[in-house]
């Protein structure tokens, strides 16, 4: 299978290079990026064939692409790929508005190509083990979840994360979607109500977007959950951040810290002191493999466009809730 990467705007593109190269049946054709400086750096760093225009990558003949553009530029790339009958793995949140997300579905359905949303945490070994525990009934009925996906501000890696035009928001756009997706997956239920405190207490002089969010989700089956999506870790923190959940059920509680498997390193040569060096399995590897396999087998991927859309819908509802100071209902017709 011939696979390309559309845009290196998202930091995850760098990791995907190694993920794709580790799959025997995949030929990583190259990448397209219209930012000349970023493209030159990526081409050198990863010894990758570079295409200046996205159309050129598609013309080179690829079966599938990983779309790693900025949030608000993904529709354009997905539509290009779909028009070329190329399957898509799309970064999250899948777009910045619901209308753009909907347009991506229409384009992919019309072209008959796969659209998979890149939610890697479903493929994390610890999270997957928790899902199996829940499915086995270890906790009995699930009642509530206290979720944390807080991190440092990512604009040090890529400035657009804190650009309201390109990101469509800040911390809430960036980090609400992962836990929302995991919770939808684990509960098998949809979010019916969203309440959120949203603000910019951390970098009020530096960025225009929100840097903090505390979100309460209520699901159709009665489960309620908190999601802390804040960019609240200092840039001196030993790692980018965390993904954790405390799950409360009928028969007790279960906690998961998805990135707990790490070494603590102290060195004058490391940028963070200490540095947590993860040694757990890379969830992105399993996610990219699932994408490739679903395309090869012509079946729906494990994470669909709908999953990406519903998570985006929740993120956008957070802003509506914060604007009104009250919970927002979501209908599922």
């Amino acid at each position: 299978m011939r696979v390309g990467i559309m845009s290196f705007a998202h930091i995850h593109a760098e990791g995907f290079v190694g993920n794709l190269r580790a799959i025997p049946d995949v030929e990583l054709v190259g990448f397209s990026d219209e930012d000349a400086g970023r493209a030159a750096r990526a081409a050198t760093a990863f010894e990758l064939r570079r295409f200046d225009r996205h159309e050129d990558l598609l013309d080179a003949g690829v079966d599938a692409v990983l779309v790693c553009a900025e949030n608000a530029r993904r529709r354009e790339l997905v539509e290009l790929a779909a028009a070329a009958r190329v399957h898509v793995l799309c970064e999250k949140p899948i777009e910045a508005t619901l209308a753009d997300a909907e347009a991506m579905r229409v384009a992919c359905e019309a072209a008959g190509v796969t659209f998979m949303t890149a939610f890697p945490m479903r493929f994390d070994a610890s999270v997957a083990a928790v899902k199996r525990s829940l499915d086995r009934g270890e906790l009995g009925a699930l009642h509530a979840v206290n979720g944390i996906n807080h991190s440092e501000i990512p604009n040090g890696h890529r400035a657009w994360f804190a650009d309201p035009e390109l990101a469509g928001g800040g911390a809430v756009m960036d980090h609400t979607v992962h836990l929302t997706d995991l919770l939808r997956w684990m509960t098998g239920s949809e979010v019916t109500e969203v309440y959120a405190e949203v603000g910019n207490p951390f970098y009020p002089d530096d960025v225009e977007v929100d840097t903090a969010g505390l979100v309460t989700l209520t699901f159709a089956n009665g489960v309620f959950a908190a999601v802390d999506c804040s960019w609240s870790r200092p840039t001196t923190y030993p790692r980018w951040g965390h993904l954790k959940m405390d799950l409360i059920g009928e028969r007790g509680a279960l906690t998961v810290d998805a990135f707990a498997q790490a070494l603590t390193a102290y060195s004058r040569h490391l940028p963070r002191n200490p540095t947590w060096i993860g040694w757990g399995a890379d969830p992105n590897q399993a996610m990219v493999e699932e994408f490739v396999e679903s395309v090869a087998e012509g079946r729906p991927p494990a994470v669909t466009w709908r999953d990406g859309y519903e998570a985006l819908r929740v993120a956008l509802a957070c802003y509506a809730s914060a604007a009104s100071g009250q919970p927002v209902r979501l209908d599922h017709g």
């Binding site: 509530a144 206290n146 309440y195 405190e197 207490p201 505390l214 309460t216 908190a226």
Partner: peptide
């Protein structure tokens, strides 16, 4: 019982308070 309580402060700060009588 188990509760998740969100506080929005006048200063713009926010807090998530978790409390529970649910553990073994």
């Amino acid at each position: 019982n188990y509760a998740l309580v969100t506080l929005g402060f006048e200063s713009g700060a926010m807090a998530l308070v978790e409390g529970g009588w649910v553990y073994p």
